[in-house]
Structures are given as structure tokens and as C-alpha cells.
Amino acid sequence: MKKGTLSIGIGSFLLVVILLMVLSAPLLTAHDPIHVESRLRFLPMSGSNLMGTDNFGRDIFSRVLYGGRITLSLSFLAMVVTGMLGMIVGILSALYHGKAFDVLCMRTVDVLLAMPFLVVAMAITTFLGRGLDKLLIVVVLMGWASFARLARSLTLALKSNPSLVAARVLGASTTTLVLREILPRILFPMVINITLELSGIILSLSTLSFFGMGNKPPNPEWGSMLSDGRLYMTQAPNMLIWPCVFIFLTVLGLNLLGEGLRDYANPFEMIPLE
């Protein structure tokens, strides 16, 4: 079996199961995730409430499933936007290596990477206000820097590659060069890294929600569920444990998938030894 296959298998299995559960939430649970029923507070796990209920008597299982919809779609959106933004900036920066544009971009990257994420995120949400869209802006604003740096170094390494030089000699325009020569070759390492980073994005989204910066109640979201659960940790551990388990399994699945892909795909492994 080729290296990485097992990780890819386990990782994608986890992700598929979680995704299916989240997408088919209405089929799996009859409870309304935001329906408050104070007489049902802090119920333990049972047949009708698989994961028990929370401090407002809401069914935790249905909150986890519906909350996953928000967390996962937001993270995925954030990942795509940060990844693309980072890649565009990085490639352009490498193409204009040493020019003013490159210097400007890379110093911005340095500044962004030097800033503590949470502190800046709090500062920004103070200005922009609370809400999922604001959360997205924060994550994208802080997240593109590392991708830009990666894309830049990958492109720079490619730039002196003979086949790229050859393409230039053969008359390729800069656009052609980027689309035909650079992008296909850096895409794979980029995608792998972005997959690995997605788990980070999920965690940071959850962290921000945990601190009350993202989601507005009563809508469920994994991070804010954690935040609520913390207060009732001793009375109803279910409130804390289950969102945690789902975050953990998603992140684990993503990491396994990302690392598996990295081990599996090495385009240069085709070359014979001598």
C-alpha cells in the first residue's frame, strides 16, 4: 500500500461521516435546536435526547448538528478565501521578486504574522461589531499571510527551474506562465497546506465564538456552545464534551487527510533512481 493511503482513508471517512450527519440534521433529530423549554434543563443522555439538554432545555444533539452547519461552512468559506488571496499575493510577489510590490507584501506579511491573533481579532471586532460575517473578515485578514509566504517561496523555487526558463524562451506570456506552469505545480502543495490549515481555521473560529465575538445567540455554533458549556461544566458536562468531540474529530480528520495527501503525492517520485 502506498504511503499515506491509510491516513487518507481514515481522515476522509471521519470527514464524510461528520459532513453527512451535519447535512442530514433534520432527518437525524426531531428537536428544534433553538426551542427553549425550561422544564427540560440539564437532562442526562437518553433515548429522546441523545446527548442530553442544555441550560435552556435545548437538545444538545440537534444543536451540535445544526451548529456544525455554521461552523463548517464558515470555516470552508474562510479557507477558500484565505487560500486564494494568499496564493494570488504570493505568486505576484514572487514574480516581482525584489520590486516594491514584493517588499510591500512581504513586510505586511511579517507584520501580520508578528501580531497575536486573539488580541487583533478582539480589536477588530470592537470596531466592526459582533457577527459571523465580521468573524470571517477577521480570519481572512489574519490568515492569508502564511499562505502568501508559502506560495511565494514555492514560486521562487520554481522560477529558476529549467522548464520555466524554457517556457519563457518559447514565448509564454506572464499569464500563461502562471496558469500553465506555476499554478498546476504549486497547487498541490498549497491545497495540502490549506487542508492542514483548515483545522486551524475551525479552531480559531471556535475560539473567537467562545470569547463571544462571532455567533449571536440563540443560534448554535460549536465555539459558542463551548463557551456556554464552560459555565455549567460541573452540572452538565455534556454541554462541553459533545461540541468538543465534534471539533476534535473534524480537526483530526482534516489533519489525517492533509498529511496523508502530502505523503501520497510526490510528483517527482516517478523519476527512476539513476
Partner: peptide, 12 residues
């Protein structure tokens, strides 16, 4: 025509 016969061709 390049010295790196293999390297100057797109590998994929």
C-alpha cells in the same frame, strides 16, 4: 536547446 534535457520539459 538546454543542457538539462529532462529538467527543461514540463514533468506532467
Amino acid at each position: 536547446v538546454f543542457q538539462e534535457a529532462r529538467g527543461c520539459l514540463h514533468p506532467n
